[in-house]
């Protein structure tokens, strides 16, 4: 499973970096990112869901399963 520490990376750069990492994965593969609380933790999972990926949140860790 790929992981990416995106703490300290503001919107939308955190989603830019997560998207680029997702591009390197196949369907069904997972990416876990750590993001800051507040806007990043609210906005990044929503962006991922809007593109059809499965998203689970555990604390500050967001796991995105590529569709």
């Amino acid at each position: 499973m790929r992981t990416l520490d995106l703490t300290g990376v503001i919107c939308p750069m955190n989603w830019v970096r997560a998207r680029l990492a997702l591009e390197g994965l196949g369907p069904g593969e997972a990416l876990t990112v750590r993001v800051d609380p507040g806007e990043p933790l609210e906005s990044l999972p929503r962006s991922a869901e809007e593109e059809g990926h499965d998203v689970t949140i555990d604390g500050d860790r967001v796991t995105i399963v590529k569709r």
Partner: peptide, 17 residues
Amino acid sequence: ELERYSRQLVMPEWSGE
């Protein structure tokens, strides 16, 4: 470059590729 192009890189139609 990622920062410069960030607002197009987040478009669902766009990609790093």
